[in-house]
């Protein structure tokens, strides 16, 4: 799949709205009905000014990606084609609070990871979005990327052999939109320069409850990679172009997230002088060997 070429205007927010609606309409809905219910009526103030031609595109692009990720089903064809939310996702989607879509976006993050792993298992390259995300997570989080495609960025992607995933501004823009929605980057401005900071803290935080409360660092990281393969599953790292594999694991981006979560009081990283069964967390020149990771329940 080439999401960044063929489903350019799809977004996590659009999938959120669609999936919430379909969670309440279990039998599935036709595209016409989805349009009627979800697209602002053109004769209303909300719909005024919107180019109606775009509307179905966002809807259809997002539906396509939803199907490709396996969260949506599409039955039938033509006008009788019905779109529905797959059964196992109904409860999780319904559980997502109206004004806090983090749970849904975390779900998408895992689906992207699973989709990427499935591709690799079949000997294919993962879809462009998760593929580029895996690569992005191997980059140094102490550096930043420009928000706007420029020569420097083009050179970086060229040298990494990643232009096939992200080729130009039209693809870079939706790519960072996905990365942001999935909790892997933060938008920052330094001076007047809009930059992208690699920071998967939200992604890690989103799965903390599923990770062991107390375990060895090695085990904990294994669980993390299972929950969020994009953060360093070895199979995905190996799928990257030659020379683009991470120099160290865990990835510096993951280490940043762990350090930040430690500061926020969500993780306790237990150091050890014993070299056996420890993990070296490297960020910049800071190296810290930890033996255990404890997850701290979020205080109410």
């Amino acid at each position: 799949m080439t999401y960044l070429k063929n489903q350019v205007v799809a977004s996590a927010q659009a999938l959120f709205v669609i999936c919430r609606y379909l969670a309440e309409h279990r039998d599935g809905e036709s595209l016409d009905l989805l349009v009627k219910e979800l697209v602002p009526p053109a004769n209303s103030e909300v719909g005024r000014g919107s180019r109606t031609a775009d509307v179905p595109t966002m809807l259809t692009d997002s539906l396509s990606i939803g199907v490709d990720l396996g969260i949506l089903d599409a039955q039938g064809s033509g006008a009788r084609r019905l779109w529905s939310l797959r059964g196992e996702y109904v409860a999780p989607v319904k559980a997502v609070p109206t004004t806090d879509s983090r749970g849904f976006r975390n779900l998408l993050l895992r689906l992207f990871g699973a989709r990427a792993l499935a591709s690799v298992a079949e000997g294919e390259r993962p879809p462009d979005v998760p593929f580029a995300l895996v690569w992005l997570m191997t980059k140094d989080p102490l550096s930043t990327f420009p928000q706007v495609w420029d020569e420097e960025l083009q050179r970086t992607f060229d040298q990494a052999g990643m232009r096939s995933a992200v080729y130009n501004e039209e693809q870079w823009r939706p790519f960072i939109r996905w990365a942001r929605a999935l909790g892997l980057i933060t938008m920052v401005s330094a001076g007047n320069k809009p930059r992208v900071l690699i920071d998967p803290t939200k992604a890690v935080e989103g799965v903390l409850d599923e990770l062991p409360q107390q375990s060895s660092a090695v085990e904990w990281l294994k669980h993390l990679h299972t929950a969020v393969p994009l953060l360093g599953d070895p199979r995905l790292l190996e799928s990257l172009p030659a020379g683009q594999q991470a120099e160290t694991t865990p990835l510096a981006a993951t280490v940043l997230a762990m350090f930040k979560l430690e500061r926020a009081g969500r993780l306790r990283l237990i150091s050890s002088d014993d070299a056996a069964d420890t993990v070296a967390l490297r960020l910049g020149d800071r190296v810290r060997r930890i033996a255990q990771v404890h997850t701290v329940k979020e205080s109410a």
Partner: peptide, 19 residues
């Protein structure tokens, strides 16, 4: 509403959220 970008017009409405 889902909008494309910060200043784009609304494309989809969260019908369930407004129900």
């Amino acid at each position: 509403a889902v909008r494309q970008g910060d200043t784009g017009g609304p494309k989809l409405i969260d019908a369930i959220g407004l129900k």
